[in-house]
Nucleic acid binder design. Structure first.
Lengths: 244, 244
DNA sequence: CAGTGGTCTAGACCACGCC
DNA sequence: GCGTGGTCTAGACCACTGG
């Protein structure tokens, strides 16, 4: 009730940021689930003992970070990892001509391994720690597009071995099965030549230039939870980046 | 004075957006110059006949778009294209190890030409229209990094031929010499092999994988004003992209 | 110290979705 | 019609800057 107001004496941060943190905590703890409607601004304001305007500023900030979705006349909802949003937010490869669409996936292998030095650094775990490694071949409009290797810290994904199938949209899987929300990611791109294996899987010649994309995805607490390395052909598609 | 309030009866857009547009217009017309301080919130509110809160919302939106810089206790300033901001906002190539820094440039050629079909489409001008083409070799920490070709619609850059020198930071040049502010850009990336010419200029072998970056930069009115194609070696540097 | 932007509040009305 | 978020207003106080 007065929890937030009191915290103000300790923290020097603005009230609306404290409100935001306290609301994000509800997402992290799972007391607010994806897809669920949350209390109205007025209710939250009463509950937290602050004005509606302060709650609004916190909710607006969370909406800007794609954590919430507000709909006039309906209410405020916890964002879900549904296809279209994930596609728009996290998938930067688009066909040179035609619609942006979700590529199909075929799992090539899925196994338990020990984290390499690079993987450990990216995921902030110890070298040699258990990780799940999934390799997938992805196609866009029937044409082979890329090979990606997803590395997950096994500690964060208990019961992974019990999965019978890995869906196309893994971010929804993380959310539904482990309550892990991907809140952001950072990618590093390089140009490399196709390896023998790349060439065999994608049906191109070895040495062909490819985009090498290394993505680290973060959860709501800004902790890394997924490392994804993609090698992508760019004859028919390109990577888009908007600078604003 | 009551101009904005009246416009409200015609436009159906929120008042703060109309205020924002009217303020952006001052930037476009140049009545507010980069680096200049603008009137205080209270003064603008009085002048436009709206409340301080509405002006604030407009100013906050413009600040979020990097058009203004607000400093508590000082005032609100028109953003300038200075090194550090441009570097952070528009330069996505960073060394694999070490600080992000502005690459040096050496002009290889600078000439008048006729717009190709692709250039014309990107710049929204007619095919064959006059364009200035500048080719530069850029190095990061002494090592050759990329070759870029900048294409400018000659109509927007009168007197370009009189330039004795092309500075490293061309966005500042556009601003100071032609009053053109680059407000955003969108980039398309592909992987390609180095051409013979690329290889000669950059000191690599032909066919080496390179990042091919095609950038269209927009002015304050969201009109394209610059096309820039870069071919970049990624042995020592990479392209970063944050997904939030 | 005065003036600026930053925060917080309270209340009014509008636009929208749903019953 | 009612409840939601969206806009707009007015006023208070805080935090920071510079003279």
């Amino acid at each position: 009730m007065t929890e937030v107001t009191e915290a103000r004496a300790f923290g020097f941060r603005p009230l609306y940021l404290q409100v935001k943190e306290s609301l994000v905590r509800r997402l992290i703890e799972g007391s607010w689930q994806p897809g669920q409607i949350i209390p109205s601004e007025m209710d939250l304001a009463r509950e937290l003992g602050v004005s509606q305007g302060t709650v609004r500023k916190a909710l607006d900030a969370m909406t800007a970070e794609n954590l919430l979705i507000r709909r006039q006349g309906r209410g405020t909802y916890v964002a879900e990892p549904e296809e279209s949003r994930i596609l728009f937010q996290f998938f930067r490869l688009v066909p040179d001509s035609g619609e942006r669409s979700f590529p199909n996936s075929r799992v090539l292998q899925s196994k338990l391994a020990n984290a390499s030095k690079e993987e450990a650094e990216s995921l902030k775990i110890s070298i040699g720690a258990d990780v799940w490694k999934i390799e997938r071949l992805r196609t866009l409009q029937q044409a082979p597009l890329l090979i990606e290797t997803i590395t997950l810290p096994a500690a964060r994904f208990p019961g992974f071995e019990a999965l019978t199938e890995i869906p196309n949209n893994v971010y929804r899987l993380y959310s539904q099965r482990w309550g892990i929300t991907i809140a952001g990611a950072s990618e590093k791109l390089k140009a490399v030549g196709a390896s023998i294996r790349d060439a065999r899987m994608l049906g191109c010649r070895p040495g062909v230039p490819m985009l090498h994309i290394s993505r680290t995805a973060l959860d709501l607490a800004q902790e890394p939870v997924e490392l994804r390395v993609s090698r992508c052909l760019t004859e028919r598609a390109h990577y888009v980046s908007d600078l604003r």
